[in-house]
Design a protein around this nucleic acid. Sequence first.
DNA 1: ATGAAAGCGCTAACAA
DNA 2: TTGTTAGCGCTTTCAT
Lengths: 335, 335
Amino acid sequence: MEEISLKTIANRLGISISTVSRALKNHPDIREETKKAVVQLAEELEYEPNHLAFQLLKRKSNAIGVIVPKISYPLYADAISGMEAVAEAEGYQLLICQSNEDYQKEIKQINSLIASRVSGIILSVSAHTTQYDHLLRIQSRNIPFVLFNRDCEQITCSKVLIDNHKAAFEAVRHLVSLGKQRIAFLGGPPHLQISQRREQGYRDALTWAGLVLNEELIQQVEFSKEVIMETISTLLNSPLPPDAILTYSDQIAQRALVMARQRGLRIPQDLALIGFNDEPVDELLEPSLSSIRQPAYEMGTEAARLIFKELNSAKFAYEKIILESRLMPRGSTMG
Amino acid sequence: MEEISLKTIANRLGISISTVSRALKNHPDIREETKKAVVQLAEELEYEPNHLAFQLLKRKSNAIGVIVPKISYPLYADAISGMEAVAEAEGYQLLICQSNEDYQKEIKQINSLIASRVSGIILSVSAHTTQYDHLLRIQSRNIPFVLFNRDCEQITCSKVLIDNHKAAFEAVRHLVSLGKQRIAFLGGPPHLQISQRREQGYRDALTWAGLVLNEELIQQVEFSKEVIMETISTLLNSPLPPDAILTYSDQIAQRALVMARQRGLRIPQDLALIGFNDEPVDELLEPSLSSIRQPAYEMGTEAARLIFKELNSAKFAYEKIILESRLMPRGSTMG
DNA sequence: ATGAAAGCGCTAACAA
DNA sequence: TTGTTAGCGCTTTCAT
């Protein structure tokens, strides 16, 4: 029950290992006859080339490391599918890791990926990442590195993002066009720059619309169901509650929708809602949830493409790709 | 900007590679003085042992291959988190693949995992897997192999499952206890044995309850939104529509709930609904969706545990672990 | 206490 | 057209 290697085939056929190697790669120098024999025996023995040996020889693994906060978020699941498509075409595998929004885990995973000699790393920072030494370490080792979705402005590298400021701005403009005056913003984890960008877009849009900025209507929440519900509760209970809410994520908006419904608020007349990410369930809710769609799959393909571009070119300039997002208006804004 | 290897350190210190290797592993034979010098230089140069070389030597990678239909299904995302926890504790990495319900892709991924010399493979078959040669190939190579969630009865190996027959049976019993008489079953892809088991549980429960089995009320659907909607439509349009539906998955039940609501049916009075998987969004729907909860995370930990058990014991007997599922009654059955 | 050498499976430059 | 050899980075006998 031993492993089948080139040696096995060579011995069985009474030829040299290199001839077998060449035959299997369809090298032009090899006689057709020999080729046939080798290929046939290889199939018979179910020979599978040993990637490990090849990788050792080439001093790199054929794997791209991917670190995302959670693979179950539809955005990341879709992005990973996109990366997979590109990686597969290049003969690469994905080493997928979840940081679970944990900074320490993110560091450990990066170290592990470096030790595994991955050919590149694609990352969305965790909600609790505020220091970036571990990211610099990737770069100091000359490992191609791409940030996507969640940016770190302090890090200079290739990036695949959407224009979060613009997306939030346009969401607010939509709410304003519906006559909303007291528009709240429920932001994500405060350290996340993506959340800050969205908040700034929201602020600038209010100013643009000539509405007052009310700091009580601006809140940040971590990814805990309890915190989210409590914050929404406070907001809806306030003496002058909002007539619309833009949220950092669908997760928050969905919960707000349910809580507003339970309080007997009419959506969107009493309270309009817009989320981020356009998750599939948005259209199943009652009413359906308006949301900002991001090209998640394409983010994945672009990120992977940048890795390979960096991998294959001697001198490489960082690229920043900004993809288009789009507001999907549904029942929660269009009565 | 070259890679630091044992050789680099050995040359710099004027000693042999094997001495460096031993010093770094704290071998008792090595003089303290030498050890100190080696360790210090290694740290200074940020030496990282090359896993690839080690793995080649040991003829196996420290990775467990995982193949699931889709990582975005909450069940699989949770299971993967469970596997990750166990793998990390053992110093292993997960190589996560999605078959996307594609039989050919499943085959390719298995071949690729074998070529990568993974230490074990954990798998849930795709919806279109009807032949199992590729699974047998894993076993013929003596690679520890665990099936989870979606079983293949033809394959003898370690398994982590729930009792799908029982789960469906109890769901129907719940519907019967509510006075439902025309209970439909919307099964998953027909080839999936997990779907067949659930259907059998449904059938047996009807018989047990003394209700007539109406074949028109039993349908199978693939994972396409269009097919699902069409099938539900046909069911609801029939002259004698069902007063309850048990579905293979939440995905189907969620859609049925929305469609029934749009037709003005009262849920659960006119139509009760129960899905499978207890996805987080179930409780956000209006009404909330009753569903069967499976211990997804635990499925993952158990599956990984079985891999390591098989990996670490010379002679190993297959284990079949049946975990408990639980019906979560919500608004779609408990008016 | 340390070194030399073999070998894991593979590729590629060089020989024949 | 095929074989020989060296080497990728590491561990591990076997010498010294």
